[in-house]
Simulated assay, not measured.
Amino acid sequence: MAQDQLPAPNTARKILHIDLDAFYAAVEQRDFPELRGRPVVVGGAPNSRGVVATCSYEARAFGIRSAMPASQAYRLCPEAVFVQPRFEVYRAISLEMRAIFLEFTELVEPVSLDEAYLDVSARSLSFDSALGIAREIKRRIRETTGLTASAGVSYNKFLAKIASDRNKPDGLCLILPEQGRNLVADLPIRAFHGIGRATEAKLRALGIERGRDLQRWPLARLIRQFGKAGEHYHRIAHGIDERPVLPNRSRKSWGAETTFPTDLSDKAEMIASLARLAEEVLRRLARQGLEARGLTIKVKYDNFQQVTRTRTLDHPFRDLREVLPHLAELLDRTAAGTRKVRLLGVSFSSLERPSPAGQLDLFTLD
């Protein structure tokens, strides 16, 4: 499709993106008043090999960011308060927030515990009306949870997400259809939601620094460089994103990982760790009534280089005994053992419901 053949954006839609500000850290500051106004880091301890899950805005002022090693966060701000996450509390608040969303629309697509897309087109004939709904949702979240949320309103998901990030914390922003393309033109590529660091580096190597640079590239050339994703980049560069809000979006995979206190070099220890992780995930899948045909292991070496290895069967994994040989084989396809390992992870994908005949015992090991 040539650039001049781009479809007209569907400006009749009214899409909201809502997310809680610095969620985990905000909950800790809410529940423990002595933490208010202080740099709070939720995640691993500063003397551990853990990472930052999130941090308060006071901590962000020191350059601390999510996914940063906790030890690095400590070096940036030794006076920060490091706290362990309380996921059961965060999940309960997430349910409260989603209950509020459902009072306004059934078209709610959760993205994570603290954010979601909402399609309020059926209730909003104008963007002023949609903005009013976003304002009321923010008020209800603060009233119910004591937390602040930022909201973005626009005619598609990409721009609603961009809008919600513009005035944090406690922000509210509207991007109108006539503003979309020009706003994207001025946007740095690093601010494009869905474009990660590796893709950003590739785009910048091609001379694409901002949305306007991306707008100049023909679709065919983007597809040659980025495959199918090139078409998505082409559309969002022009403010077009027809992805629907999917209220019943199914989770594609379940996983777990662990970072070791000291690097592992013994493969037997690695297999034992992978088995424990696999068992944990299989139990979670069983509670959800799911089976999986896909298995992936993640290995992070001591220099932080990361690799994954995947196996997909033509039938679901029935028990942990069936998983174990695949774990060993996938690990053999990495440099683990010859190189030290700081993190291991296991995830299951290609999820499906079990047959009516029922499941075998997932965890029996003779």
Rank of each mutant, 00 (worst) to 15 (best):
N248T: 13
I189G: 00
Q306D: 12
A26N: 10
R13P: 05
L222F: 00
Y233H: 01
D186H: 06
A335H: 06
E88K: 13
F363T: 15
F62D: 11
R333H: 06
I195W: 03
P78H: 12
Q84K: 15
R216H: 05
L183C: 01
P69M: 15
K168L: 11
R140H: 01
Q3I: 11
F158V: 03
R36F: 08
S347C: 12
D266T: 10
L277A: 09
T258M: 12
F192T: 02
R190I: 14
F226D: 00
R283Q: 15
R293D: 04
S350L: 03
E88A: 15
Y57R: 10
L274V: 08
R276S: 15
L95C: 10
M97Y: 08
R309I: 04
T310P: 06
P85K: 07
Y90H: 11
A26P: 07
F192K: 01
T334M: 04
P85G: 12
E231G: 15
L125T: 12
R60L: 13
K298H: 10
K228W: 03
V323C: 08
R251N: 12
K168D: 14
Y24C: 14
A357M: 07
V27M: 11
L107D: 08
T105V: 03
I162K: 02
I93A: 11
D21E: 14
S253V: 07
E109I: 03
D170C: 07
L159V: 02
K298F: 09
L176K: 02
R38L: 12
G146R: 10
D213C: 01
T338R: 06
P244T: 09
Q179Y: 00
R333L: 04
S66H: 15
A268D: 15
F101H: 04
Y117D: 06
L324F: 12
D119H: 05
F32A: 09
E79N: 13
I271N: 09
S253L: 04
I195N: 03
I133K: 00
E279L: 10
T259P: 11
D31N: 11
K267Y: 06
L343Q: 11
W217E: 03
E103H: 02
L344C: 10
G239D: 00
A134N: 01
E88L: 09
R139I: 00
F32P: 02
I195P: 05
E79T: 13
L176I: 02
R311F: 05
A268V: 14
G171L: 06
E28R: 09
I240C: 02
R204N: 08
L131P: 00
L277R: 06
F348N: 03
S71L: 10
P169H: 11
F104Y: 02
L331I: 02
N47A: 10
E178K: 01
P244I: 07
L187M: 03
K157G: 05
V40A: 07
L187C: 01
R91C: 14
K340N: 12
D128A: 07
R353F: 05
Y155E: 04
T105S: 04
A45N: 08
V307P: 05
A163E: 02
A73I: 12
R276H: 14
A130V: 05
L282A: 13
R353T: 14
L118Y: 04
V341A: 05
E143W: 02
F260M: 10
S273A: 15
L264N: 11
P188F: 07
P110F: 08
L203D: 00
S350K: 06
V51Q: 14
L324K: 15
S355P: 04
L187H: 01
G239L: 00
E136Y: 00
R166Y: 06
R75Y: 11
I223C: 04
